[in-house]
Each structure stands twice: as C-alpha cells, then as structure tokens.
C-alpha cells in the first residue's frame, strides 16, 4: 500500500505542477462566475440558472481534465521512459495502475472542491447570504466526482495500449455515448426486433451509463436526490471501476516497454 500511495502522491504532484490544470480551473471558475450575469437576465430564477451552469461547467471541465490529464500522465511516463526506473523496482504493474488512478482521482477531487467552493460562493453572493444551500447540491457534486472517476478509469484502459490521440478520442466518444446510454436501450425496445434488442441490451450493459449520474436539472429545481439513486450509482461505479482497472492492469501487465 505504501508503494501505491507513493505513486499516487507523485501523480498528484505532477498534475498540480502542470499549468494546463490551472488554466482549466480558471476557465471553470470563470464559467461559474459568469452564471451571475446569466442569472441577472433570468428574472426570479437566478439560483436555478447559477446551479445549472455551475454544475454543468464542473461536469464538462472535470471530464476534460479527467480525459486529458489522465491520458497525458500515463503516456508521458511511457514516452519519456520515466517508467523504466519505477517498474524495475519491486513494484507490480497493478500497483502502478492503482497508484496512478488514486493520484488522478485525488487531483480531480481537489479540483472539484475548488470549483464547488466557487459555486457556493456565487450562490451566497446571489442570495446575499440569506438563502440556504441545499445538501442535494453536494450530492450532485459527489455524483460528478464518481462520473469523473469512471472517465479516468476508461482513459487508463485506453492509454494502457493505445496512442494518446486515439485514447482521448475513444474516451471522449464513450463519455458522450454514456450520456445517452438509456436511449440505446429504448431504441432496442422500440425496434421490435429480437436481434436488435439483444444487441442494444448488451451495449447498454457494456457501455458506461452516465445518465444516472446527471442530476443537475433536478437539483437546480430544488428537487431532492433519492438515496436509492445515490446507492445505485455508488455500487455501479465501484463495480465498473473494478472491471476497468482490472482490464488496465492486465493489458498494461502484458505490455513491452520499448
């Protein structure tokens, strides 16, 4: 475990010393801040618009961070051969993958916390400190975090065997498909063909389902998030991540570092 934590800590250190990360956080904070202006032109629904824009910015910018930083950090290690001096030490490749994942996960968590603090600040500014901030906002942020962990897991799988450009393309494609995964299943049901139905059902279970993680609309309307949904998303994330990280470990374990 010490070795995994050492790798995670180093990954975090590398990520926070990367200037791109700060640009992305700044961009996200600007987007969250700009929701004040949008709120001004939306009479009586300032809070709704701010939560909507703020959470969406966190979700999208977070996904961009997860994809690009996740892929870049793994590929850089392979390209620059920094891995040689690490993997020659008494380290299992699985430990390396887990360390990288934990480090990236922690980086994303810190970034989300910074963005969430920005959003809460904006909400307090709008309500002049009078309106309470509902706990469902924080649950929504947690669900965004789970989603980002899944994206990081997918990015790790692709970067364990593919080029950075292809890895980014595949991961982004899965991110977008994952947003509409439930529609694939509905399409199969509507198609009225057993063959199509079995294909769409298989795809539904195989591809990540991010639809259940998106509670932004509900939260902005002040609707509470069902605990069952939170529990389902948590179990789903753990199971899916287990599969993704196992796949990364197996693929990366067989790879020759040329």
């Amino acid at each position: 475990m010490t070795k995994i934590l050492a790798i995670a800590q180093n990954t975090f250190k590398e990520a926070i010393r990367d200037k791109i990360l700060y640009s992305l956080i700044l961009f996200a904070l600007l987007m969250i801040g700009s929701s004040i202006l949008l709120g001004m032109i939306s009479i009586n629904i300032e809070t709704k618009v701010t939560i909507d824009v703020g959470l969406s910015a966190m979700s999208v910018i977070g996904a961009v961070m997860a994809v690009f930083i996740g892929i870049n950090l793994v590929h850089k290690e392979i390209d620059k051969k920094t891995l040689y001096s690490i993997l020659s030490k008494p380290i299992h490749r699985t430990q390396f993958i887990l360390g990288k994942f934990l480090g990236l996960g922690f980086t994303l968590l810190v970034n989300l916390v910074i963005m969430a603090v920005g959003l809460v600040g904006v909400l307090m500014f709008i309500s002049r400190g009078t309106g309470g901030i509902h706990s469902s906002l924080f649950i929504a942020v947690f669900l965004i975090f789970l989603q980002l962990l899944l994206i990081t897991g997918i990015a790790l799988v692709f970067s364990s065997f593919s080029t950075p450009a292809l890895s980014a393309m595949f991961t982004l494609a899965l991110y977008f498909i994952g947003q509409f995964n439930a529609d694939i299943r509905h399409f199969g049901t509507a198609a009225n063909s057993l063959a199509i139905q079995s294909v769409t059902t298989s795809l539904y279970y195989l591809l990540p389902n991010f639809g259940n993680f998106n509670v932004i609309a509900g939260v902005s309307h002040g609707r509470p998030i069902a605990w069952t949904l939170l529990g389902y998303d948590l179990i789903y994330s753990i199971a899916y991540l287990f599969i993704l990280l196992s796949a990364s470990a197996v693929i990366f374990g067989r790879r020759d570092l040329k």
Binding site: R17, K81, T82, S85
Partner: peptide, 11 residues
C-alpha cells in the same frame, strides 16, 4: 538499475 539515457520526472 540505471536505464540507458535516463529520463526522470523533471518537475
């Protein structure tokens, strides 16, 4: 182990 033309974490 010292790799050939070693490159380490520059940060």
């Amino acid at each position: 182990y010292l790799p050939e033309n070693p490159f380490f974490y520059d940060y």
